[in-house]
Design a binder for these strands. Structure first.
Lengths: 198, 198
DNA sequence: GGTATCGCTTGACATAGTGTCAAGTAGCAA
DNA sequence: TTGCTACTTGACACTATGTCAAGCGATACC
């Protein structure tokens, strides 16, 4: 199992997550992680060559732990564009809390570290494809508002669903997670779905 | 004048701005700023006690330089809620490009530095009042969508107008500034303004 | 029983950046 | 001449990442 802590590598990854959650707002140092994993600071580098690599691997660890690959199934199975949009918002919106702490650390590094920056960009670029698929599904159903080109709409949805916006509403404004998901569905509908001309 | 560079302090502040704009994406060091201002690194500390203070003072310098205090006049003078919302989005949206580089540096520091964090939070909290005023103006005109309480709507508008979202659309997606402002007006209208029940 | 290897420890060190301190200096003014 | 202001220079403390070399204990193999 990926959470098997007899394996030092996994114990380290687990410690990263714990430490990130424990030390809210403060930066997590290699020394902190080592201490929590019960090894020396230098030993971390026997498993991960840099702090950036450690954080990147932690994102994969979270995905394994939470079975993130299964989340998009409902979205892909949706029969209408609107269903697909809602399912995608729900899937991604409920994934953010799992990835948030590592994401934040990675984003903070991204300003100065190329590897961290690229790893996160890759993730966001994958997510953007989900946005594009949802928008295209709306378009195929002829319910995408004619106010935007699909590319523009994709950019807007992609922006709306950013981790920073989740952080802003949840952490800064103190919204409950369910309200966040509900609100995003509501406003996405208002923004993207063409008004009934019945 | 605030841009008088015979004054060393102003020369430093100007150098911060220039350096931030010049070194896109890379972190700006005290040494870089000193070099650009033509003084020693240590001399910076004769004018600003920390890097955070220097960046914070730079935000005020930008405001003085750009006359930011005048930007909100059209919004305050608006006669209807919808006008007020549009004027506020335009004012803030066109202010972001001026403040962006310093904001980014300050936000990056905010993760580890209390002073930087508080200074930026203060700014955002002031901006939130503008959001609240716009939403309340809509409400007073009975055109605020009944889907949200004013507080919720304020949080959403506040989130939409974040510097991070501007960064995402302008820097990441490559949108022109005018498209950004136009799009924000469009989606704010769709989200917040009650549909005509005529 | 010896020995080789693996996984880790320990201490020392390089590097980069912020911030501090003390001594010195150039220019200007009374 | 004296003294002040604004700056310079060099040295240093501190924090954090990352590297290196030597050593050590357990396990596995012959």
């Amino acid at each position: 199992m990926s959470s098997d802590t007899s394996n030092t590598r996994n114990r380290i990854l687990k410690s990263v997550l714990e430490q990130l959650q424990a030390s809210q707002e403060k930066g997590v140092r290699m020394a902190d992680i080592a201490k929590r994993a019960g090894i020396s600071r230098q030993a971390l580098y026997l498993h991960f060559s840099t702090r950036a690599e450690l954080l990147i691997e932690t994102t994969y660890y979270v995905d394994r732990l939470k079975g993130s690959d299964k989340r998009l199934a409902p979205s892909r199975a949706a029969e209408t564009g609107i269903e697909r949009l809602n399912a995608f918002i729900e899937a991604w919106g409920n994934y953010i809390p799992d990835i948030y702490h590592v994401a934040k650390a990675l984003l903070a590094m991204g300003d100065t570290d190329d590897a961290a920056n690229q790893a996160w960009s890759k993730r966001m670029s994958d997510m953007k494809e989900g946005c594009a698929a949802a928008i295209n599904a709306l378009d195929a159903d002829k319910v995408l508002s004619s106010d935007y080109a699909p590319d523009q709409a994709t950019d807007v949805l992609w922006t709306m669903l950013s981790v920073r916006n989740w952080e802003h509403l949840i952490i800064e404004c103190g919204w409950p997670q369910e309200d966040y998901v509900q609100m995003l569905k509501t406003i996405a509908h208002k923004i993207f779905v063409k008004k009934q001309t019945a």
